[in-house]
Amino acid sequence: MNAFLATVRRDLLLALRRKSEVLTAVFFFVIVTSLFPLGIGPEPGLLKKIAPGILWVAALLATLLGLPRLFAADHSDGTLEQMALSPSPLGLLVAGKILAHWLLCGLPLVLLAPVLGLQFDLDASTLGILTLALLLGTPLLSLIGAIGAALTLGLRGGGVLLALLVLPLYIPALIFGAGAVEAHIAGLGAGGHLSLLAAMLALAVFFAPWATTAAVRIALE
């Protein structure tokens, strides 16, 4: 468990020394979500309708932006190799890296979403559901994305391949995440969608680190 926390601390410290890499993804999210209201014009009815989809697609792409860096730097400087040979289980270290990735690339999106949602004329309760859906959904995006990042490790042009590999897998999260907000706006209640999102998250927490670890080991061979 100490090794897990040490990995999280290490990756946060490294991000602190290179702030620009983290800020890129967050700024991308802010700018993309701000472009839509500017482009479409002040039509509250339409904006309200497209808000969940746009915020979710932007969150998805912002997460994707940070994924190639998850393992690439550690792979090229050999520290990933050292992790694989460490007495601590590699799965634990990989899980720590995924958590650090979410804290850096997922959590800021969750915290920013209520502010950005205001641009789309969403009311307070809808903003609450949006934030909750992203709180459940963004860790899921990091977990699934980590598998893709590990599979494309060391490949030339891995970034594009990563997007092609991971984006289809993000579809369920997108449907239920955006669906939760839409259902709430329609007055149907978001409970069902959120429960399904939470169930997917529980499944991913269990399987994704394991699959990622297997992919990392293959990449190191």
Partner: peptide, 29 residues
């Protein structure tokens, strides 16, 4: 029981030598 040092630098360029050593040890538990 084993330590392997290969061709790679296996140190993080953005950290200090002290941080590198202590974090590498922490990852090893």
């Amino acid at each position: 029981d084993m330590i392997y040092l290969g061709h790679h630098a296996a140190v993080k360029e953005d950290l200090t030598p002290l941080e590198n050593l202590r974090l590498a040890a922490a990852l090893d538990g």
